[in-house]
Nucleic acid binder design. Structure first.
Ligand SMILES: [Zn+2]
Ligand SMILES: [Zn+2]
Ligand SMILES: [Zn+2]
Ligand SMILES: [Zn+2]
Lengths: 132, 132
DNA sequence: TTGTAAATGTTATATTATTACATTGTGTTA
DNA sequence: TAACACAATGTAATAATATAACATTTACAA
């Protein structure tokens, strides 16, 4: 049984916004959108984002400095993440592929390093953009 | 035969600095270090970095906003990159593993997206830090 | 109820990256 | 060589992303 995380007020406001969004949101765009709810400063946004990332409710798309809700119900913690990113329309999807995640989780290189986490970002054209 | 890229003056100064560095360098740390060589503005650094990334001489470590020289002689273009990152000492190495790169280059997900590029970052503890 | 950790509020500041515009260098081809 | 096109440079201003420092409040369990 996973630990239940009761989101705080700010965390909930910000998670709901990201969760409803069809595309990854940037921190200052989030800030702009939640000012009517009383969240006024960047730090309030970044603190909520940090916590939401930590508990796996959202992920950061590193190449875009943007945040997306976890689309994988079993992905409670952001230890093994993979995304596909369309370089034309910027659509981002979380990849949920057992074979891939097993392959990467078991990967061990020559340097004797043991990994506890990975993040993978694929780039290309989505179906829609490809057929244009 | 790969296209030969003759680096320009600024590109060479900045590449040499990154290439000599044992760790990834950040843009403004690069700027600070090349001011004695007549490079005075952030944009001069970012332009050189962009070009060096484009031709595959360096890679950007997205999770760190830092740049590392390509450690893989066959990696002329940054289309398929993988790194290991020590979360304790911040040591970064480029992973060069044919099986891994083949696996990822051939990966196709359900969404019908065809990928032209990927970037993978593994996190953990390096040998040294693990044994502390 | 009291101690502790988490979350919040607020101001200021640090860090990373780009826009806009003018100029100079480099290599190709008429 | 002259003319052109394109890459690279120089400079100033500003945008976008993220954190430091400090005071206060809330949640919740011992
Ligand atoms: Zn997820
Ligand atoms: Zn697309
Ligand atoms: Zn490389
Ligand atoms: Zn280490």
């Amino acid at each position: 049984m996973e630990k239940q995380h009761n989101l705080s007020k700010n965390q909930k406001i910000i998670f709901d916004l990201i969760d409803k969004s069809p595309e990854p949101l940037k921190a200052y765009s989030i800030l702009f959108n939640v000012q009517k709810k009383g969240i006024n400063a960047p730090l309030q946004v970044y603190r909520a984002l940090d916590k939401l990332v930590e508990i796996g409710k959202i992920h950061k798309i590193e190449s875009r400095n943007a945040f997306i809700a976890c689309q994988n119900s079993s992905c409670q913690i952001s230890k093994a993440t993979a995304f596909s990113i369309c370089e034309s329309c910027e659509k981002v999807s979380e990849i949920s592929n057992t074979k891939l995640s097993k392959y990467l989780s078991n990967f061990a290189d020559q340097a004797g390093m043991k990994y506890s986490k990975y993040n993978l970002e694929f780039f290309g054209l989505c179906k829609k953009c490809k057929s244009k």
